[in-house]
Simulated scan of single mutants.
Amino acid sequence: MRSPMSGHRTFRPSITDRLTKAVMTASGSVPAPVIQLAGGAPRRIDGQVLDPHFQAGVRVMSLLSEGEYEDMPLEKARETVERSAYTVSGNRIELAVVKDLVLPLAGTDRPDDETARADLPARLYSPVHGDDPLPMLVYFHGGGWVLGSIDSHDATCRYIARMGGLKVLSVDYRLAPEFLFPTAAEDAVASFRYVRDNAESLGVDPTRIAVGGDSAGGNLAAVVCQQTRDAGEKTPDFQLLFVPATNMSARTRSFELFGEGFFLTGKNMDFYENTYLRSDDDRLDPRASPLLAEDFSGLPPAHVATGGFDPLRDEGEAYARKMADAGVTVSLRRHSTMVHPFVNAVGATPLARAALSEAVGALRMGLAY
């Protein structure tokens, strides 16, 4: 459902959803050996052991599943993502400011093109009141460029704002199939440019503006850095890439190892990419596959966090290595016991919170505050 106030989808949890969330939140405080009883024998693949909380969570999600996203009507799939995110979001983190707003990005450069710039809903998070400038993370949610919203990633953004002591702007970029590639990429670039060019009015330190996101959102954050660099503009000051999708032109070994049974599946990715892209030619475009860029020099410092049991693991790590080889300052962290996308499970497992806290520490170091 779309909210008439902000334009983004609003999920309304049922009693069953609330009970499931309560159970998942409580299980996050249960010791791993006890959780192991519910999750079954440890899963061991590629020298890694799946965390008991995630193993139990995958089992619970499987039992509650209404099917795969690619087999559902689109609106049902979108609602299912919102429900899944809600159940693992944990207790709400209160902040001084959580405000829905609209980014005035609409232009007249392509008046006959429905994919031209549009005003976009967004949500601003701040740990403090007042106008004193703070660093900002412009965040792009995951969901395969097809699913997800600023609501599905609300808990993640709240956690980053609280733990990082900075502002977070979560952008509700336009989704496929209503808006095909490269609309999401163009929305992401336009959103960053708006924050960069209006930092003072937003109460943002203009020298400390980062971009970040998970999965498809990590893809968009990487694209923002490449596109602004290529345009000769001021780039983001840091990039925070969680389990990023970086290459739609090929499949890696991690797809073979983890393409079934670990939340994100290979068929999910096929569905997302086929829904987002206009043709196979788009797979070779760096705005879809940033790993295929010819030049990785001059990009902002980065923290790349991957999950050990994630089909996207290898391409995310390949992207980090490409940047490092080009002289970019990069920290790469494989969370070997986790599935995709662990940053959204802050309410269900202490390891997810620890991983997110570690990334926030890298962000603070990268922005030097």
Score class of each variant (00 low, 15 high):
241 L>Y: 10
302 A>K: 02
298 G>W: 02
308 G>Y: 07
282 D>L: 09
295 D>K: 08
312 L>T: 12
287 R>C: 00
297 S>G: 15
298 G>T: 00
282 D>T: 04
258 F>W: 04
288 A>Y: 08
275 T>L: 06
285 D>C: 07
254 S>T: 11
264 L>A: 04
256 E>Q: 13
297 S>P: 07
248 M>P: 02
278 R>I: 00
310 D>N: 03
287 R>S: 00
296 F>S: 00
295 D>E: 06
277 L>N: 04
304 V>C: 00
254 S>W: 11
297 S>K: 10
309 F>I: 04
254 S>D: 09
313 R>P: 07
306 T>H: 03
311 P>H: 04
240 L>K: 00
289 S>Q: 07
300 P>C: 11
306 T>E: 03
281 D>F: 11
275 T>S: 13
302 A>D: 10
263 F>H: 12
286 P>S: 02
313 R>C: 03
242 F>Y: 15
308 G>H: 09
257 L>S: 09
276 Y>M: 05
274 N>R: 14
280 D>C: 09
268 N>L: 05
270 D>Y: 09
267 K>E: 12
280 D>V: 09
250 A>D: 13
263 F>Q: 11
275 T>Q: 04
287 R>H: 04
294 E>T: 15
273 E>I: 12
277 L>V: 07
301 P>R: 13
256 E>R: 13
252 T>L: 08
298 G>C: 03
241 L>T: 06
291 L>H: 08
271 F>H: 13
258 F>M: 06
246 T>D: 00
256 E>P: 04
306 T>M: 00
280 D>Q: 12
243 V>G: 08
241 L>R: 05
277 L>R: 09
295 D>N: 13
291 L>T: 05
313 R>I: 06
299 L>P: 02
271 F>S: 01
266 G>P: 03
308 G>C: 03
306 T>N: 02
248 M>L: 15
284 L>H: 14
255 F>P: 01
264 L>K: 06
282 D>C: 11
240 L>W: 06
279 S>Q: 05
249 S>P: 05
303 H>R: 10
304 V>K: 01
255 F>E: 11
261 G>I: 09
288 A>T: 04
245 A>P: 05
279 S>D: 10
246 T>H: 04
251 R>M: 14
245 A>C: 12
249 S>L: 08
249 S>W: 10
288 A>S: 11
301 P>K: 13
265 T>V: 09
264 L>T: 11
246 T>R: 04
293 A>E: 10
310 D>Q: 01
310 D>H: 03
304 V>R: 01
263 F>I: 13
258 F>P: 08
251 R>P: 06
249 S>E: 07
276 Y>N: 07
282 D>F: 08
254 S>R: 11
268 N>M: 11
305 A>F: 12
254 S>Q: 08
257 L>P: 06
265 T>G: 02
252 T>Y: 15
281 D>T: 13
243 V>F: 15
313 R>K: 13
253 R>M: 14
278 R>C: 12
272 Y>G: 02
270 D>R: 10
309 F>H: 07
251 R>L: 14
301 P>L: 05
303 H>C: 10
271 F>Q: 01
263 F>L: 14
